[in-house]
């Protein structure tokens, strides 16, 4: 069977809050919760829930390490997360290309 002309979007990634966080994490190596909170404009509760869900899906990885004597939790995109995000970008390109001007 031929692949669909208009591809299906990954519903998990397509959620605006998650997509926003993943896009930020794709630009940097790692960031802590406060940085993501300030940059994304999400509420603390929403960001916390989204980070947990994305970690469960293997898209992001939380690491605890000591920096300057303080324990810091940082988040980074995993390889699977980056692959998923690239796939999403490709899908969206194809969908948008299908829309006539």
């Amino acid at each position: 069977m031929a692949p669909p002309v208009v591809p299906e979007v990954d519903g998990f990634l397509h959620e605006p809050a998650r997509l926003r966080v993943l896009a930020f994490l794709a630009m940097v190596d790692a960031a802590d919760f406060m940085y993501l909170l300030r940059q994304t404009g999400l509420s603390r509760g929403n960001l916390s829930v989204q980070m947990g869900r994305m970690e469960e899906h293997g898209l992001v990885r939380a690491s605890k390490r000591e920096v300057d004597g303080r324990l810091r939790t940082t988040f980074a995109l995993t390889e699977d997360g980056l692959t998923a995000l690239r796939g999403y970008k490709e899908t969206m390109h194809r969908i948008l290309a299908a829309i006539p001007d």
């Binding site: 630009m27 940097v28 790692a30 960031a31 406060m34 940085y35 940059q39 920096v67 810091r72 940082t74």
Partner: peptide, 14 residues
């Protein structure tokens, strides 16, 4: 470290 990071958060650029 003491004034900005607690407010702006911590980031490692690529």
């Amino acid at each position: 470290k003491w004034l900005v990071e607690p407010r702006a958060g911590y980031v490692e650029f690529s």
